[in-house]
Design a protein around this nucleic acid. Structure first.
Lengths: 111, 111
DNA sequence: CACGTATATAACCTGATACGTATATACCTG
DNA sequence: CAGGTATATACGTATCAGGTTATATACGTG
């Protein structure tokens, strides 16, 4: 877990992940899409790969990178207790609002 | 969004958030729980507060810090497209497994 | 096999940041 | 109001991460 956030802290890396969300991409494609230098792209991909965010396959001279879900799933898991926290708060807010005016507006959990 | 990850990249800050998950805490309490120096705690709290992760209220000489949900909710929102990505993958995996052996196990979306 | 393309790595520089020490500010109690 | 407690901030330092430039490696094609 330790490094997941550090890795995502880098805007360019997040941008790369965003690109890979659509489909696998070559280094050159990323380089052009994000207007970054080739060594920079390679370095970030190295970091992302070491951390398991992406994997690559070789196609002739190209390397095609694609997303791997695991690290982001861990992030999702890390978030879980906080989700409980804020849903608790939203419930409280809702109850509060329900008490404020006696006319019940859109009811919870039922559109 | 930009800085959310950078802020969470710091392990001590994540630890502080973890503490605040249970209940609001004074600076001194955090200092002792996490065995960090007082200036360090104050500094991290400053960063967390500036980014909206926490808020404080004054009680005599103490300042009690508590969690604010918004930034983590944004993080949750950021994660959404990736969740779609991996659930798509898990579905594919499931279909694959279903093809492997013809005995259908627990069925999708219906417990 | 020489050359171009695609990607990775090395070396170096620089800016950001986290820590510790020291000090300032605020509040409470006798 | 003096002294203690609680927290914030200033400052100096060391570490680290990201960018650029230059070079290495690998593959394809004439």
């Amino acid at each position: 877990m330790e490094s997941t956030f550090a890795i995502l802290a880098e805007p360019n890396r997040r941008a790369i992940l965003g690109l890979l969300l659509e489909q696998e991409q070559s280094v050159g494609a990323i380089e052009r899409s994000l207007r970054m230098s080739q060594p920079s792209v390679s370095k970030h991909l190295r970091v992302l790969r070491d951390a398991g965010f992406v994997e690559s396959r070789v196609e002739a001279q190209r390397r095609l990178y694609r997303l791997r879900p695991e690290p982001l799933m861990e992030l999702d898991a890390w978030l879980a207790p906080y989700r409980r926290f804020w849903s608790k708060h939203l419930d409280a807010l809702e109850r509060h609002l329900a008490t404020m005016d006696r006319t019940p507006r859109a009811r919870r959990k039922k559109p």
